[in-house]
Design a protein around this nucleic acid. Structure first.
Lengths: 338, 338
DNA sequence: CGCTCTGGCGCAACCGCTTACATCATCGAC
DNA sequence: GTCGATGATGTAAGCGGTTGCGCCAGAGCG
């Protein structure tokens, strides 16, 4: 039997049924104190009975708050961002917010227009993994002009006074490299990520770790990754070096996986002859031929923290506190560095 | 200089500036015909000048349309769903809709509450990869009672009269198995997915392909996967069978990747001694030690199609057309079945 | 010249809810 | 017995738009 659509129940309907004013019902719904116990329970009963659900559009308009936040990521397909999105969702939904997610496709023009849309929707706050070049960032001015709080994740703009949550790239680089050193490696190569983020921080950590261990940096051991697939190519070049590296630190897991592929293909054993480590702890890391050691950057927590900071900023009266948070990475040692 | 928040421009402001009525401005914004050319351009100019952005909350309330759609997926971390979400977004945004994504965490109670929230937000439509058991599905009744169109993806409920877009699991099973047969395999094992979706369809396709080729089905070659990591375990058991399978079809890529891991670990060569194929075409398939052949299920297109169908249903006057669409899979042959 | 017709514009009434404040018993206190 | 202080309820005025229709000028027509 095809249900025939029914107009949703409104406050007004309940009020009329019970011979009270709309206000009284509204107060009950919002749990206001000043309503009599008996009236309240009558209203509550009717609400349950009719399965009343507040109309959030109307509520938002009147209260000037939508309880929606906007999130912009460059690409949901990157498990890093998917994980962040998930973290944001699970931590902010219990607080009563809904999340509108937009893909910017790594395109700053598209991103700007998405931000404007979200602003038009009156979101209470924004979380951005921005593709903006800091210079062309008058979008940020528009956000600030509205007084809408926002927090940046992953991509940082130090020159802008905004909250930020991200992985501590330098710590990641250091952790990975320290681990390799501890495992006895001395000729440690690095396939570096895009500049400035997250490449430079990880590279810096890599250098720092080597320096701390008194190992001289061999510049020819440092190669740039052009994209996620380029770990393979880079590694083939590394393998032909003399002396050959005894470890490779890929700036992310796909790169490291590509490295492993090249190594195994060359008939070299992992971890006996070359150890490999990545970063990101993507979920397929241990599905690989040799389970990949990695540095977990706690993407879920990045999302959660960002959400938390944002909610706090939304609650703040006038001045928006700016918080900068580096999430500490943790080592996940698997077979590839045994 | 910290921007001091400014109240956003409203229709009223523009109207007052130009000494016209709010109505006129509203009409210009919405491109209504009955506005004089000169007035229109004056208004337009001022709109640009003040960078007016319509308040969608107010607009939604008055027009009784939000131009928002809700999407519920069991887990954004599964690249399959992330891809679908992306497909939905990129195809529906140009039509003026925004997307609210919710994770149900594969929990039907949570899902139901998310749906209610979205309904409360007055979404114009819903796309669901539902975790509901069809029996307990009074949520669907609530959706229908509201007259909100929805389309199901991935998980189907044949007993419910609703639009559906999904991969053609049987075709996937057939395609994969046919490919293995064509490559000369005769002892083809299958690691089957969860019942009923997507496991049973793929299994059915597998059986059909074997039957068509006149190859008898060896029931001991069919093992169930308990989770994504279980391809490894299952394969170890398969390898001890006599005669040993000469091919393995994993119901999805992670399973197939686990299978490859077990095979290589046993010192058996891929594809020379055993060929392997998966399904899903996850992005890391060719990062594996041996690039994995797979069946692409066009997740992006699933999302796009679902969006398209939904928008059509939203536009439909009274009766909501129900469309069922099976997306045809395509073969992606890589090294593992060479 | 009076008529209808049409293009251009505005009035009024909401959409469903909230904010701020007014009203009105009831009650203990002096 | 009168008074402020409660506590419980209702009133009015929006929030920023949209829908539907009414109004008025001028044009076209007989």
């Amino acid at each position: 039997m095809p249900n025939i659509p029914t107009a949703p129940v409104r406050l007004k309907d309940i009020a009329k049924d019970l011979n009270v004013s709309v206000m009284t019902v509204s107060k009950v719904v919002r749990n206001c104190a000043d309503v009599g116990a008996e009236t309240r329970s009558r209203v509550l009963a009717r609400i349950k009975e009719l399965n009343y659900q507040p109309n959030w559009v109307a509520r938002s308009l009147a209260a000037r708050r939508t309880f929606m936040i906007g999130v912009i990521v460059p690409d949901l397909m990157h498990s890093f961002f998917a994980e962040i999105a998930k973290g944001i969702g699970t931590s902010i939904r219990p607080l009563g917010y809904d999340v509108v997610i937009c893909n910017s496709e790594e395109d700053s023009v598209l991103e700007a227009s998405e931000i404007d849309r979200l602003l038009g929707r009156q979101v209470d706050g924004l979380i951005l993994a921005s593709a903006q070049s800091p210079s062309a960032a008058d979008v940020f001015d528009r956000i600030e002009a509205r007084g809408v709080p926002y927090v940046l994740i992953d991509r940082r703009f130090p020159e802008r006074q905004a909250s930020y949550v991200g992985a501590d790239d330098e710590a990641i680089g250091k952790l990975a490299t320290d681990h390799l050193i501890e495992r006895g490696c001395r000729r440690i190569a690095h396939i570096a990520g895009p500049q400035p983020n997250p490449g430079s921080g990880r590279l810096k950590g890599y250098r720092a770790a080597l320096a701390a261990a008194g190992i001289p940096v061999n510049e020819s051991y440092i190669l740039p990754a052009t994209d996620d697939a380029s770990g393979y190519e880079a590694t083939r070049r590394l393998l032909s070096l003399e002396p050959r590296p005894d470890a490779i630190f890929g700036y992310n897991d796909p790169t490291a996986a590509g490295a492993m592929k090249a190594i195994l293909e060359a008939g070299i054993r992992i971890p006996e002859e070359i150890k490999v480590i990545g970063a990101g702890n993507v979920h397929y890391s241990d599905l690989l031929r040799v389970p990949l050691s990695t540095v977990d950057q706690a993407s879920t927590r990045i999302g959660q923290q960002a959400a938390e900071i944002l909610v706090k900023a939304i609650g703040a009266k006038r001045k928006k506190p700016v918080t900068t948070l580096w999430i500490e990475p943790t080592l996940v040692a698997r077979e590839s560095t045994r």
